[in-house]
Simulated assay, not measured.
Amino acid sequence: MERLQKVMAHAGVASRRKSEEIIAEGRVKVNGKVVTEMGFKVDPEKDEIIVDEEIISEEKKRYILLNKPEGYITTVSDPEGRPTVMDLIPDLKQRLYPAGRLDYDSSGLLIMTNDGDLTYKLTHPKKEVDKKYKVLAQGEVCQEDFEKFEAGMVIDGQKTAPAEISNINYKGDKTEFEIVIHEGRNRQVRRMCRIAGFSVISLQRIGFAFLTLDGVKEGDFRYLSDQEVVRLKKLA
């Protein structure tokens, strides 16, 4: 059983707060009876819920791949009024949530879904889902520095799992490389770079498990195919 306003929000009627207003206005019926009680609970699979004389259906699971630009918060809302990833998908009625995080000043691949079970499993460290990043660093990063990544580093008193380094390119006084991790601790790649002794100019997630950014421009998104969703669930 779930609160009525939560079911309405998940079905894409409105936000929870707006749904509460709709309930208070007497615009909602459950099994033929008007409900105005905020704490009223329903079974979305059994109860008939009508809003403004229209039956609302059970929430459909959505899965999208978003190419997040820098300067967006990876949350549904922000009390400081900063732009969030939800601003990039304004036409979707259902409320989606990010599976994992990308820092405000990082960009790249982000999975958005309303499948809470899959989100939990994909972000749990024990599942060891690979995440690939492209890093542009200030200075010439030497092999000894990269070996620190591959050996693991101590962050918050706990050693990280070995990272994989590839595609190293030196561009004047900068170094570009790709790194694969699967733990996803808070700002992990940036903190590892800091420990190794260099600063990050830009950080982009370019891979999540088998998914890539191919065909998705920065700021755009696409729906995952049924086959991709099945593969993700098998990973989880």
Score class of each variant (00 low, 15 high):
E21S: 15
E183A: 00
A11P: 13
G100Q: 01
Y170G: 00
S106I: 00
A151R: 15
P90R: 12
D87H: 14
F208D: 00
L224Q: 05
S166N: 10
I201D: 09
A196H: 01
R191Y: 13
N167I: 03
A196Y: 07
L211C: 07
I56D: 03
P125Q: 06
V189T: 03
V35E: 09
R205Q: 05
V28D: 03
K93M: 05
S57N: 13
I89K: 02
N114D: 14
R231G: 00
F221N: 01
E70W: 03
L92S: 04
S106H: 05
M86A: 01
F177H: 09
Q227P: 05
N67Q: 05
K93P: 15
E164T: 13
D78K: 14
P98K: 02
A137D: 03
G184L: 04
G197N: 10
S107C: 01
I89C: 01
V34D: 10
G32Y: 15
Y223C: 03
D115G: 04
I111V: 12
I55L: 10
S106Q: 03
G71R: 11
V230M: 11
V85D: 01
S19W: 09
V189K: 02
L203P: 07
N114F: 10
R187I: 01
E37A: 15
R185E: 05
G81N: 15
P90T: 10
Q5W: 13
R231C: 01
I64F: 15
T74G: 00
R231F: 09
D52A: 06
N114E: 11
D87Y: 09
K18W: 09
E178V: 04
S19Q: 10
Y63W: 15
R205C: 01
E128D: 14
G116I: 10
V34Q: 08
I181Y: 07
K6S: 06
E228M: 08
A163R: 06
G71N: 03
K18L: 15
Q188P: 06
A24I: 13
R185N: 06
I206Q: 02
R191Q: 05
L96Q: 03
V42Q: 02
E21Y: 10
E176S: 14
M153W: 09
Y170N: 11
I49T: 02
E147H: 12
G32D: 12
M192Q: 07
A99F: 06
D117I: 08
I23V: 12
N186A: 03
K127V: 08
H182D: 09
K127L: 02
G108A: 04
I195D: 07
K217Y: 07
S77V: 04
E21I: 03
G152I: 08
Q158A: 13
S225G: 07
E183L: 01
F149H: 04
L203I: 00
